Amino acid sequence: MTTAQTVMRSDVAHISVRDTMEIAAQRMRQLDIGALPICDSDGCPVGIVTDRDIIIKVVGVGANPKTTTAGEMAQGADKLHTVEADADIDEALTLMQQYQIRRLPVTEHGMLVGIITEADLARHLPDRTVGGFVEAVCALHLPSTTES
């Protein structure tokens, strides 16, 4: 059985609910990543912020990234979906497809221990499985093309 732990990245970076969106953006730039889980003081994930969130939900509405906190972003977000490290990868894929999410935090007893991204799926799973995931989650967000 392939578990979430087998596929996840265990070196997941995260930010605190007290960190600002400016700090989040700087961290994403330094690490060359596009998303960071938001954790409470106990290390439990409560949200996730993407580079797009910072642009659309902070800068785009005139809010100040130097004062807008990750906690504020987490409060306005949809319910955060996570998967336990020992869960079968099929459970993780089902969650990601059902809720159209590209990054899934992995927990152990509620604490963040990793993250599963599209790239992780591509590295660890058969092409057919990854193709099904891309079709179910990613293809819906791609611009359509038309042939002339």
Rank of each mutant, 00 (worst) to 15 (best):
M1E: 12
T3R: 07
Q5N: 15
Q5A: 15
M8E: 06
R9Q: 14
R9F: 03
S10P: 12
D11I: 04
V12S: 05
V12G: 05
V12E: 08
H14G: 10
H14E: 14
I15H: 03
S16I: 04
V17M: 04
V17L: 02
A24Y: 01
A24L: 01
Q26V: 02
R27A: 11
R27V: 10
M28C: 05
R29P: 00
R29Y: 14
Q30T: 08
L31Y: 06
L31V: 09
I33Q: 03
G34V: 08
A35N: 07
A35Y: 03
I38E: 06
I38F: 03
C39H: 05
C39N: 11
S41E: 15
S41Q: 13
D42M: 08
G43M: 08
V46A: 05
V46Y: 10
I48R: 00
I48D: 00
V49W: 02
D51G: 09
R52N: 03
I54N: 03
I54Q: 07
I54E: 01
I56C: 05
I56E: 10
K57E: 02
V59Q: 02
G60E: 03
G60V: 06
A63K: 13
A63F: 04
N64A: 04
K66Y: 12
G71C: 01
G71P: 06
E72L: 00
M73T: 05
Q75G: 13
G76D: 04
G76K: 06
L80E: 07
E84F: 01
D86I: 02
D88K: 04
D88Q: 08
I89D: 02
E91Q: 14
E91G: 07
A92F: 02
L93P: 09
T94Q: 13
T94R: 15
L95D: 07
Q98A: 12
Y99C: 08
Y99G: 08
Y99E: 09
R103W: 09
P105H: 10
T107P: 00
H109C: 12
H109S: 15
H109G: 12
G110N: 05
M111C: 11
L112M: 04
L112S: 08
L112H: 07
L112T: 12
G114T: 12
G114K: 03
T117V: 00
E118M: 11
A119R: 13
A119N: 09
L121S: 05
H124T: 12
H124F: 11
P126G: 14
T129A: 12
G131Y: 06
G131E: 09
G132E: 15
F133R: 10
V134F: 04
L140D: 15
L142I: 07
L142P: 00
S144W: 12
S148Y: 13
